[in-house]
Amino acid sequence: MDIDWGALAAVFGVSLGITVVVVVMFALGLAAWARAGTEEPAPDASRGRQRKTAAVTAVLCFAACLSVAAYGIDLIVPG
């Protein structure tokens, strides 16, 4: 039995890279969600727009993490 070390290293590198990307995306989502959820009164309209932008950014980051997790489950579960 031979082990293809190049393929093993490639799988390790890709999985490590995807893991880092998902962790960073989740952390950015949490940071954006915290920024959007501050209960300070908005002195002008731009602050409200910043909150909406932060909320949309958080949702997009969480959706990206969910899609990567769902794709991984789809690869693992047959059928």
Rank of each mutant, 00 (worst) to 15 (best):
L60Y: 02
G6P: 00
V59M: 15
A63P: 05
C65A: 14
G29F: 04
A32K: 01
F26Q: 09
I3W: 11
V24E: 04
L66F: 15
V21D: 11
T57M: 05
E39C: 03
L16H: 05
Y71F: 15
G79W: 09
E40Y: 12
A64G: 04
T57Y: 01
L60F: 14
G13A: 10
E39K: 06
V24M: 03
Q50M: 02
R49L: 10
A36K: 04
G13N: 10
A45F: 05
W33E: 00
A54N: 08
D2P: 15
C61G: 06
V59C: 15
D74I: 01
R47N: 05
V14G: 05
Q50P: 04
K52L: 13
T57N: 03
K52N: 09
E39W: 00
M25G: 08
R49H: 08
L60D: 01
V24H: 01
W33L: 11
E39I: 04
P43L: 06
C61F: 11
W33Q: 08
L28T: 07
C65V: 15
A31V: 07
G72R: 14
T19M: 04
V77I: 13
V11Q: 10
A45M: 05
Y71T: 15
R49Q: 12
V11M: 11
L75A: 08
V21G: 03
V77D: 02
V68M: 13
A10S: 14
A63H: 01
E39D: 13
I73D: 07
R49D: 14
R47T: 09
A64H: 04
S15Y: 03
R47A: 11
R35T: 07
F26P: 05
V23K: 00
W33M: 06
G48F: 00
V24Q: 00
I73T: 15
C65G: 14
V22D: 04
F62G: 00
I3T: 14
F62V: 00
L30S: 09
A7D: 09
G29L: 06
A69C: 12
A34S: 12
V24P: 06
L16M: 02
G48D: 11
C61N: 09
A9M: 13
W5E: 15
V77S: 03
V77C: 07
I76P: 02
R51C: 03
L28V: 12
W5P: 01
A32N: 10
D74V: 03
C65T: 15
R49C: 01
F12P: 01
K52C: 05
A9F: 04
G29C: 07
A10W: 14
A31P: 02
A63T: 05
G17N: 00
P78V: 05
V21C: 07
L8M: 15
V20Y: 02
V77H: 06
V14W: 09
Q50R: 15
V21I: 10
T19L: 05
I76T: 09
E40G: 07
Q50I: 02
A31T: 07
V59E: 11
V56A: 13
C61V: 01
V56L: 15
A55F: 06
F12V: 10
F62C: 02
D44C: 06
V59G: 07
W33N: 06
A64Y: 09
A55P: 00
